[in-house]
């Protein structure tokens, strides 16, 4: 385990590792995204109340789930960078932020589009959409902070602190937005327990969630590789790697 962590922290080893993983991940992810979309768009049945517009769930929910998880990935990378001072963690943190922000953006836009046929408005202050918007702000904050520092090593440390603070805050934000929404709009009043989704609709959703996780990993690895090329352009290992 430790040797693995140690290896992950070494740029040459990581570069090679990422190259191999990307080679496998890229086709797998694209295929899964395509299959999930076709399944969700064409084969899954429509919802009894919302009709076909609910099909947006197959990108909206996965994007939201992964965007949220991405923030935690970023915070963990930040923690590693602060505690163990592994430079690679800085690179990872830097690479996650734009990917997470893009996925949050996707979740927001698809949520808005979904809102139009369902609620009759492009933007509805729904609990989950509002939480996503705040998550988007959190990502933007981290990215803006990174850009504001001239010294990139210090920038990474500052972003690590900020993302850890954000991580502590996210559950509170989610719960508070939920209550806020319940005060102004009834949360779905449930007497039957968990919200239910029929199996014929659930399987494509699970596939899409998996595909989005893969996509996240792929994009982060690609960004990290690009970052390594920039920061290690003087290194011998990189030159031999590129030959």
């Amino acid at each position: 385990m430790w040797t693995f962590v140690h290896k992950m922290g070494s740029p040459p080893w990581f570069y090679r590792f990422a190259t191999i993983v990307i080679r496998w991940l890229l086709p797998t992810v694209l295929l899964a995204l395509l299959a999930g979309s076709v399944w969700g768009l064409l084969y899954a049945p429509p919802d009894f109340r919302q009709g076909n517009s609910y099909r947006i769930i197959y990108i909206h929910v996965p994007a939201a789930v992964v965007a949220l998880a991405g923030y935690y990935v970023m915070a963990i990378a930040g923690l590693v960078s602060l505690v163990w001072k592994i430079k690679m963690a800085d690179t990872a943190m830097r690479a996650v932020a734009p990917v997470g922000a893009a996925l949050t953006f996707v979740a927001l836009v698809t949520g808005a589009i979904w809102g139009k046929p369902t609620w009759g408005a492009w933007w509805v202050w729904d609990a989950r959409i509002t939480s996503m918007l705040i998550l988007f702000f959190l990502y933007l904050g981290v990215m803006a902070l990174f850009e504001a520092y001239d010294d990139k090593a210090a920038a990474a440390k500052a972003c690590a602190v900020l993302s850890l603070v954000g991580t502590v805050n996210i559950p509170i934000i989610y719960k508070s937005v939920d209550w806020w929404y319940s005060l102004h709009q009834p949360a779905s009043i449930k007497f039957t327990g968990e919200s239910a989704i029929d199996a014929s609709m659930l399987y494509p959703l699970l596939l899409m969630i998996g595909a989005f996780y893969g996509l996240f990993a792929l994009l982060v690895l690609l960004n990290m590789k690009a970052e390594l090329l920039g920061t290690h352009r003087q290194s011998a290992w990189l030159r031999s790697e590129l030959r």
Partner: peptide, 23 residues
């Protein structure tokens, strides 16, 4: 008065089948 749809997603046939049984 505020109203909101709940979070159940199901095909129309399932919804119909459930109709008579709703609490």
């Amino acid at each position: 008065v505020l109203a909101k749809h709940d979070e159940n997603y199901m095909p129309p046939e399932v919804a119909e089948a459930l109709q008579g049984k709703a609490p």
